[in-house]
């Protein structure tokens, strides 16, 4: 039997969703790809067990979050070409706002950025966020507050609307 039976199907179904989260977590396409590849390699290594009764997606998402936090210093080195990709319409209000958001996200600490992505992109509860990050509910609450305060200062139109 193929040790990786079903892995391709899992990746095909979920990789784009995971990639979007990875991109928001890192803010950089190359790092996001590196991050997701690292995580999927780990998933593949444990595939036999995960496919039997584990939850591969939950495992992958948790690994994504924690691997990214552990890469925190590396990510602070901004890469050439890490700008927001072309969106088709230049400099309209929404584009400028999103550029500002991208900039503001880059100013957050990795954990603050993670709580914003999990709470407001993936719409996870505080409890789920705490579980994914392996931290306490209180820390999620406080990090969310810090992150929103910082975003409010940097891009008031995002948070106050």
């Amino acid at each position: 039997m193929d040790r990786y039976e079903g892995f391709h199907e899992f990746v095909r179904a979920r990789q784009q969703s995971l990639m979007r989260t990875a991109y928001l977590l890192t803010g950089d396409t190359h790092l996001a790809e590196d991050l997701l590849q690292t995580v999927l390699t780990r998933v593949a290594s444990h595939w036999a067990k995960l496919a039997k009764g584990g939850n591969p997606e939950a495992y992958a998402r948790k690994a994504l979050v924690n691997q990214n936090i552990s890469w925190r210093r590396r990510r602070r080195v901004e890469l050439p070409g890490a700008a927001l990709p072309e969106v088709g319409q230049s400099h309209d209000e929404a584009t400028v706002r999103r550029l500002a958001l991208l900039h503001a996200l880059a100013q957050l600490t990795p954990r603050q950025r993670t709580v914003i992505v999990l709470r407001y992109y993936e719409d996870r509860t505080e409890h789920e966020t705490a579980q994914l990050m392996g931290t306490s509910l209180g820390t999620v609450k406080s990090q969310t507050n810090y992150a929103l305060s910082k975003l409010r200062a940097l891009t008031p139109q995002e948070v106050d609307r």
């Binding site: 990746v11 990639m19 928001l24 790809e33 990709p85």
Partner: peptide
């Protein structure tokens, strides 16, 4: 923003 994530096949 997330929609700008690249397409990949990993």
């Amino acid at each position: 923003l997330a929609a700008h994530a690249p397409d990949v096949d990993l």
